[in-house]
């Protein structure tokens, strides 16, 4: 039986790698992929805690599988985020001809 701590450590490592990519990479598409990595790390944490608690402390359907339901919602929100984010990337590329986050600084003063 693998301790839940290992899963949480893996999720922490994955989240920090995603965060590193978001803060360091310049290509907007790669930044989006790193955001997906961070969302996946969060999902892994939800599922690890769901496995840690099992169905304890809930009625027949009260909190049963709440971690799994949260992971499901995160996946749905990630799909929406990817659709909107990539549409914005396309719009920016059309108006500026670049997806480099260093070149996109109109709103920076």
């Amino acid at each position: 039986m693998v301790p839940i701590t290992y899963y949480l450590l893996l999720a922490a490592a994955l989240f920090c790698m995603g965060m590193f990519g978001v803060l360091v990479r310049t290509n907007a598409l790669v930044v989006f992929m790193c955001v997906e990595l961070m969302l996946n790390a969060v999902n892994l944490t939800f599922l690890a805690f769901a496995r840690m608690h099992g169905a304890l402390g809930g009625g027949p359907n009260a909190v049963f599988g709440v971690g799994h339901v949260s992971a499901f919602f995160v996946i749905a929100v990630a799909a929406a985020e990817a659709a909107i984010g990539l549409a914005i990337v396309i719009a920016v590329f059309r108006s500026r001809g670049s997806v480099n986050v260093d070149d996109i600084r109109t709103m920076k003063h």
Partner: peptide, 8 residues
Amino acid sequence: TQALPAQM
């Protein structure tokens, strides 16, 4: 922390 999977 020490966390183990639940016994079900």
